[in-house]
Amino acid sequence: MRYLETERLILRAVTAEDTQALFDIYGDPATNLYNPNGPYPSLDYARQRMASWLDGWAADGIGQWAVEKREAPGHVIGFGGLSYKDYGSEMRLNLGYRFATSAWGCGYASETARASIGFAFGEGEREAIYGMVRPANLQSIRVLAKQGFRQIGQLSDVPGDPPSLVFMLSRDDYARECGK
């Protein structure tokens, strides 16, 4: 099983047993404030998404992590990691994360992002990681900025809404940031 530890967190590759936690977090309207698709509508939908995440790990060797506090292993507080996402006409490696509201404001998204990025650039020849954020989601924009991402454009991905902001972190920028 793929597994990372940070100062405060355990990140482990998701398993089918994480489906209820996935639904609890992604089905909560509060965690979907900036998600134009809204909360997951059912546990069945969460099962389908989990199957997709498991397929991603199998195919790409990377994916979403179930995030737990080191002081409370076994209790998932969020999910985060990397997966391929359609950026209009191109599939790109995308950083994403979502946490239970009880975990907000603690820096867990930044800690998860940092570990996920290090894993991705340390595992193979990936040249860049992207992030797509709704313009009003200032917290996620700050998380990306802390990791060294820079805005490179916009993508009109939600008809009738302002375009999402597109950010990128290259392997070279990451190496410079980390002194590698």
Rank of each mutant, 00 (worst) to 15 (best):
G63P: 11
G63T: 02
S83E: 03
Y87T: 04
Q64F: 11
G80Q: 03
D55H: 08
M91K: 15
E71R: 06
A72Q: 12
E71H: 12
A58P: 10
S83D: 08
I62C: 06
E71F: 08
G81Q: 10
I77E: 12
M91R: 03
A59T: 11
D55Y: 15
D55C: 05
V76P: 02
Q64K: 10
A72G: 03
W57F: 04
D60Y: 14
K69E: 10
E68Y: 02
F79I: 14
S83I: 08
N94P: 05
M91D: 14
D55N: 11
D60H: 13
Q64L: 06
S83H: 15
Y84M: 06
R92H: 05
S89Q: 11
L93R: 05
N94M: 04
E68R: 00
S89L: 02
K69Y: 07
G61R: 14
L82W: 09
R70G: 01
A72S: 03
D86R: 06
V67A: 15
A59W: 10
V76W: 01
R92V: 00
L95W: 13
S83V: 09
G81F: 13
D55L: 13
S89C: 09
R92W: 00
S83R: 15
D55G: 07
S89E: 10
V67I: 13
Q64C: 10
G61K: 06
M91W: 12
N94Q: 14
I77A: 14
D60C: 11
G63Y: 05
E90M: 01
G81N: 07
S83K: 13
G80S: 09
G80K: 13
N94F: 09
M91G: 04
G80M: 07
L82Y: 15
R70K: 06
V67C: 02
D60T: 07
I62A: 11
E71M: 11
G78I: 01
L82A: 01
R92S: 01
H75I: 05
L93N: 13
Y84P: 11
A58S: 07
G74W: 08
I62H: 09
G81Y: 13
A59F: 03
W65D: 03
Y87A: 15
G56Y: 06
E71S: 03
G74F: 09
A58L: 08
R70V: 00
M91T: 01
A58F: 14
G81I: 06
